[in-house]
């Protein structure tokens, strides 16, 4: 499909733009996911809001990723077929490696979304196992965005990548260091007359009777 005869086509610009936006949204969704599991909350942000925003941003990211993939495939300037969208390292564009990473990230992302939408059917254990792939999906997507693409070496792209990395890094560090979300004011609790008992952190798993 030759819409523009020569030069930088609209689809190619759209690919780059949607790619950058995808990265931003994916970063935001990932950061919120980390905050979610860390049980972060604040007065303005109850838990259900963090959780819902995480899910919705992920879906929005999906929309932009799909747009990114479709515009890449449809663009006539380079020959990246539909197969390359799902089968990693099957296309040799620019050496094939960075593009392949993008495909890997896309595959992982599809798995994350699909299992989340079908969570009630497949059960918690399967869903949780697959959801760990998020920790692989995002870095791979980030590498793809800095390695491939026309804008790879552009300062704004690098700044974007750095910013996203910083955000995720901060989220993960916060999750590891804060106990029980470290959030601000929750529902007012009755003050005990003496210090509350040491609470044993009990990890309960649905259904599992072995630890």
């Amino acid at each position: 499909m030759t819409v523009f005869a020569a030069g930088v086509s609209a689809t190619w610009m759209l690919t780059r733009a949607s790619g950058a936006v995808s990265l931003l949204l994916l970063t935001a969704a990932f950061a919120l996911g980390v905050a979610d599991v860390a049980r972060w909350r604040s007065r303005m942000w109850p838990r259900f809001a963090v959780d819902a925003l995480h899910r919705n941003l992920a879906l929005l990211a999906l929309a932009f990723v799909v747009l990114h993939v479709l515009t890449t495939v449809l663009d006539s300037f380079v020959h990246i077929g539909l197969l390359a969208a799902v089968l990693p390292f099957s296309n040799g564009y620019r050496g094939g490696f960075w593009l392949g990473l993008g495909t890997v990230a896309f595959d992982l992302f599809l798995a994350l979304i699909a299992t989340s939408l079908l969570r009630r059917r497949i059960g918690l254990r399967v869903w949780r196992t697959v959801h760990w792939a998020a920790y692989a999906c995002w870095p791979v997507a980030l590498l793809h965005s800095v390695g491939t693409g026309t804008d790879a070496a552009q300062p704004w792209m690098l700044a974007l990548a750095l910013g996203c990395t910083a955000a995720i890094g901060a989220a993960i560090i916060a999750r590891l260091t804060l106990r029980d979300g470290g959030g601000g004011v929750g529902a007012p609790r009755r003050e005990p007359a003496e210090p509350p008992p040491t609470v044993r952190r009990v990890r309960t798993r649905q259904g599992a009777l072995t630890r």
């Binding site: 007359a193 003496e194 008992p197 044993r200 009990v202 309960t204």
Partner: peptide
Amino acid sequence: GQCGPCVFGLAAIADALTSIADGRAARAL
């Protein structure tokens, strides 16, 4: 250790009773 109300609730009740028995509650009061 499967359910929060049992784990935390019984622990809190036991701790409160112990503190009543050993005098911590009296001092705190």
